[in-house]
């Protein structure tokens, strides 16, 4: 059996048809993971029991496979009366899983901000919330644009895990075609190339964003 280019091309439209689902899952999970991760980092910084708990939680998340999280959320939560659809479960699972990693990135980004910034904010009378939103977060983002972009690409590449929950994203669609036709090489190659294109696009966007963030305002 040889690689059939014509067949490969014929699988492009159906696989591309699922790109919307892939992008939706990736986008929601990026936002969710960033929001939860930033929340985790703020709680961890505030210390106390909450901080200790979050520290444990982050280590716990990072030490378990993402598939375990997806299966647990999908199959175990219903025992406790919590029924989420496959799509919602998938997005929550990816958000939670990557929040642990992003919390670490945020930590590095905040640690790199000189102490004087928070002192100046306090001296001006800014409250904790205003200081976080207007002084700390923007400077943190400048510090971490590149590693954060890497995790966004990772999240994109993790969307095929949702195939195990039968979420109709690109790789799932490719597998459907494969099992219908008994030809795996072509649809999987096509899906892989589309992922490659998307990942390159995100990397490029992040690079553009980074130069804009750093532009005339660099320290």
């Amino acid at each position: 059996m040889q690689f059939d280019l014509a067949f490969a091309l014929s699988t492009v439209p159906p696989i591309l048809g699922a790109i919307g689902m892939t992008l939706l899952v990736a986008a929601v999970s990026c936002v969710g993971a960033s929001a939860i991760g930033f929340g985790f980092e703020l709680v961890r910084r505030s210390g106390g029991w909450g901080g200790l708990f979050v520290r444990f939680l982050i280590d716990f998340i990072r030490a378990t496979p993402v598939l375990v999280w997806l299966y647990c959320l999908y199959f175990i939560l219903p025992f406790y009366g919590i029924r989420l659809g496959a799509l919602a479960t998938g997005m929550i699972g990816l958000s939670l899983y990557y929040s642990g990693y992003l919390a670490e990135v945020f930590k590095a980004g905040i640690d790199a901000i000189p102490n004087g910034q928070a002192e100046a904010a306090r001296a001006l009378g800014l409250g904790r919330m205003d200081m976080t939103i207007f002084v700390i977060a923007p400077q943190m983002l400048r510090n971490i644009a590149a590693p954060m972009g890497n995790y966004f690409v990772s999240i994109l590449k993790a969307t095929p895990y949702l195939a195990v929950l039968a979420v109709p994203e690109m790789l799932g669609r490719a597998f459907d075609i494969a099992s219908d036709t008994y030809r795996y090489a072509e649809p999987l190659t096509v899906a892989g190339l589309i992922f490659l294109g998307l990942a390159l696009l995100i990397s490029y966007a992040i690079k553009r964003l980074e130069t804009r963030l750093l532009g005339p305002t660099a320290r």
């Binding site: 000189p114 004087g116 100046a120 400077q139 305002t217």
Partner: peptide, 11 residues
């Protein structure tokens, strides 16, 4: 308050 290292917000 005015600091030795200015502490202006760079962004």
């Amino acid at each position: 308050m005015v600091f030795q290292s200015f502490n202006l917000f760079p962004h």
